[in-house]
Structure formats: structure tokens, C-alpha cells
Computed example of a mutant assay.
Amino acid sequence: MTHLLSTPNGFSLLGWRKFGLAALITWLLPAVLAGIALVLQWLLGSRDWGDGFLMLWVMTVLLLYSPALSWFALVVAVPLVWALMQRGWFGWIPALLIGMALGAALAFIVGNDAMVTFGAAQIALLRAVVGRLCPPAVTAVA
């Protein structure tokens, strides 16, 4: 049942401090990982290996710049995540749906349809980090 439900009143178990830490990790982790990947790609010279590796480099650069765009989705997601966690509906499926909806809004603003995927991944990552920081807050009670 964790795909759809979470613990009712789960945000009270989590608290604002841990949620802020989870949002900060979710916001900056993709850029840190992309920075490491970009350094490795630069050291290996993978941009010159062909079109597939060039696309990998482009996606890595896009992830590196993601904090400049993703703050919008996180700010809008906070009240939605709070409401869903309080009602016990912050499972994986609602998290992905929120991420896709916020990614679609960002895609409309930016003009890049890839933002839908990034939005879904970001809120799913937020769900995973929240589950790691406070497992009782997202464990569904049957």
C-alpha cells in the first residue's frame, strides 16, 4: 500500500526541520552528482565519442543547472506535500503525479518538455529522502 498511501498525520512525525533538510538534499543532490559526472566526462573526453555521448553530456549539463529551475517546483510542492502527508496520501504514485504536474507547469514556462520527467524524478527523490530521514512518516498503515 505504500504505492498510494503513507502514514496519516505523517508530516507531524517528520517536522519542518527534517522536511527542510529533505528539500535541500533534493534540490542540490542532482547538481552535485552532475558536477561529478561532468568532471569525469571531461577527463575522459567523452563529448568527442559520438552523438550518444554528446547527448549524455547535454543531459549532465542540464542536471547541473537544475537547481536554477527546480526551486520553483519545490516551493509549489511544499503545501501539496504537506497536505498529502497529513492526510496519509503521500505514497509513490501521488508523489510522481505531483512531480509530473509541476514539471508540466515548468515545461510550459521554460518551453522544454523534458521538465515533466525532471519534475517527476525530483518529487520522487523528495519522497525517497523523506522516507530515509523519517521512515515512520511515510510507512503506510494497513
Rank of each mutant, 00 (worst) to 15 (best):
A95L: 04
G99R: 04
V61T: 10
P79R: 09
V76R: 08
V78F: 05
L28H: 01
V61A: 13
W71S: 14
W82Q: 07
V78D: 01
V81S: 02
V58Y: 11
G35F: 13
L64Q: 12
V76W: 11
F72Y: 10
Q41D: 12
L106G: 08
P67Q: 03
A68L: 15
A68Y: 01
M100T: 11
I98C: 05
L54A: 14
L102H: 07
L63H: 04
S46M: 11
A107R: 02
P79N: 07
L80G: 03
L97K: 01
W82G: 02
L56E: 08
S46Y: 03
I36P: 05
L97R: 03
V81A: 02
G52H: 10
A104N: 05
V39C: 06
G111C: 07
L80A: 06
A34D: 00
P30E: 03
R47T: 14
A95F: 03
Y65R: 13
I93Q: 00
R87N: 11
Y65I: 11
I36C: 08
T60H: 03
D113P: 06
L62D: 15
W89G: 04
A105T: 09
P30L: 05
T26Q: 04
L40Y: 09
V110N: 07
P94H: 02
L84I: 06
Y65F: 15
F53A: 12
M100D: 05
I36E: 06
D113R: 10
V58Q: 14
L84G: 00
G103V: 04
L28G: 01
L44R: 09
S66R: 00
G45A: 03
S46R: 06
A105N: 07
V81N: 00
M85N: 03
G52E: 11
V76S: 03
S66V: 05
M55E: 12
A83V: 10
P30Y: 03
L43W: 09
A95Q: 06
D48Q: 13
G88Q: 01
V75S: 01
V39P: 02
L97F: 01
V75N: 09
W71R: 12
I109Y: 07
L38S: 13
W82K: 04
G111W: 08
G103H: 02
L54Y: 11
D48N: 11
G35S: 13
